[in-house]
Amino acid sequence: MKKMNRSTFVKYSLVGAMAVILVFPALVFSQPKEIPIGSIHAVTGVISDIGISMRRGNQLAVDDINARGGIKSMGGAKLKLLLADYEAKEEVARSEAERLIKEGAVCLVGPFLSGPAMTIATLCEQRSIPFVIDVAAADDITQKGFKHTFRTFAISTNFANNMLIYLTQIMKEKNVSRIRGVVTNTGDLFGRVQGATFLKFVKEKNFPIDVLAHIEYPLGIQDLSAEVSKIKTLKPDVLFPITRSGDAKLMVTELYKQRVPLMGILGPGSPGLYEPEFIRDMKALSEH
């Protein structure tokens, strides 16, 4: 048998390698890479219904993009969603975002709550990771000069401003010149910012609302009977609540139980009153 010298061996190996490449080009050249994107939502905790719904929104979009051939300019690279749960807590949001970045997420998307969004935005700025906020709305997050944070949603100022525009129209149509109102909000970042922004606009624009009280309670509260009985004694025309899914249901149920006579409940940018879960659980009360 002829002994194979080094150069012959190299030659045959190269031919072999070429053959593999020719036969299985897909394996070598166009193996689409996966692009990991970190999706961070509160799928457990006090706003879990909202967190689950948002994670599903992220996932459906990823599936749709992959079904349409992925990212075409990058050889059809597929998106891969890395999942994280921040449990509606700021400290968990930071550690979970950190984990997603360590696992290779090139970009983060989420969350609903503004406090956790702020901690994630701060972290992303330090780590140079792009962050697209899908809902969290407190003005501050995108006004701190962060270079890596973007948002698809409106901000608190819009909500407060639009509320007063709509209210002007309603008051004109109904011939109401002054409103006695009570403002309530949850005590997390968005609740506080949204409540304060609304009150600031009312004051600055000298809007004809007499604010009888501004009531704040913690996110995740289990009983609103004391707050609602206080509202009842103040006899407001309109309640301006800034709620979340759990306390929105408590609030409406309690207002009904205690028979609080109101002209209306007008949420100036209030989550909790429109989600499928609210309408399912509250049935007729959601239409009041």
Binding site: S53, G57, N58, I71, V106
Partner: peptide, 29 residues
């Protein structure tokens, strides 16, 4: 369930990222 403001903007958030990746042709930050 239905697409509401939360799930809707969550869907859009990923679309914004995909559109940016398409134009960036890169995953570089």
């Amino acid at each position: 369930k239905y697409i509401d403001t939360n799930s809707g903007y969550a869907y859009l958030g990923v679309m914004v990222i995909a559109d940016a990746l398409e134009r960036a042709k890169s995953t570089n930050s």
